[in-house]
């Protein structure tokens, strides 16, 4: 594998977006890009990552390779990332290490890190990316992040309801409750403020607040978030990157009592 990002902060943002959700991951590298899937220790949140060749300045992968890493270690190396540096990832044919090369052409500076790979025996779950959903919402990632931060302070449980009035985020804590209603809107001057809802059925689902706080860490990857809900199935919270690919979080709901 030889894969070069023209801006090393892109890979840092990708890793930082899920390093607090899962501790280790297998990157599956092939000619169609880098893909990865990991499940958190409590088996409530599934992270699915896709970095297609379009995200790289140059991308080459001669044969499918699995690259297993501890995310805390990788994240430490990525503290060197800067937007003025490129980052090239190298993995040999019989991989036992990942080489990261940062290059700043202006500063005539390069940095090289090597990281030992780990053999991770992770089970892969079959996730249908075209999973049918009753409700699809596209909205501003900034707006979603603010709502999650504000409301999760009040309760461990966060409810999403979608009906004819729009989408309602609500919490009902021991000492306080809160509710935010958003209706579809189109802002032609600022399309990142658009909110669209397509719905075949109403939904009313609750999730544990702590996972939502992890999910919003990926909001640096995209201006928009796409939400997909169906009654009694995991919700999908997805951030799509400008150059293709992105990260999706499948979050199992709490049971309806």
């Amino acid at each position: 594998l030889e894969a070069k990002f023209d801006d090393s902060t892109i890979f840092k943002k990708i890793i930082d977006s899920f390093k607090d959700s899962v501790s280790q991951i297998n990157f599956m590298c092939s000619e169609s890009g880098i893909e990865a899937q990991a499940i958190d220790d409590s088996r409530v949140l599934l992270v699915s990552l896709s970095i297609p060749p379009s995200c790289f300045e140059t991308y080459r992968c001669d044969r499918p390779t699995t690259v297993g890493v501890y995310l805390s270690s990788l994240s430490k190396l990525l503290k060197s990332a800067s937007s003025s540096a490129t980052l090239t990832l190298y993995v040999e044919d019989q991989p036992d290490e990942l080489l990261l090369l940062f290059e700043e052409s202006k500063a005539s500076k390069s940095m090289e890190y090597k990281m030992k790979l780990v053999d991770i025996t992770a089970d892969m779950l079959e996730v249908d990316s075209d999973m049918k959903s009753d409700v699809s919402v596209e909205m501003s990632g900034v707006e979603f992040t603010k709502i999650v931060r504000d409301l999760t302070q009040l309760s461990d449980s966060f409810t999403v309801s979608v009906g004819k009035d729009g989408i309602v985020f609500s919490v009902d804590g021991e000492t306080a409750s809160g509710k935010v209603l958003l209706q579809p809107k189109e802002d032609l001057a600022n399309p990142e403020n658009n909110l669209s809802i397509s719905m075949t059925k109403t939904i009313d689902l609750s999730f544990a607040s702590k996972y939502l706080l992890d999910i919003i860490k990926a909001s640096t990857l995209s201006n928009m978030i796409s939400l997909k809900f169906s009654e009694e199935t995991p919700a999908l919270f997805e951030f799509k990157m400008e150059k293709g690919g992105g990260i999706g979080f499948y979050l199992a709901p709490k049971y309806d009592e």
Binding site: S42, R43, P234, Y255
Partner: peptide, 14 residues
Amino acid sequence: DAPQSDIDQFFKDN
């Protein structure tokens, strides 16, 4: 508080 479901209930092992 409502009990939490887990992801394995919904997706098959591959």
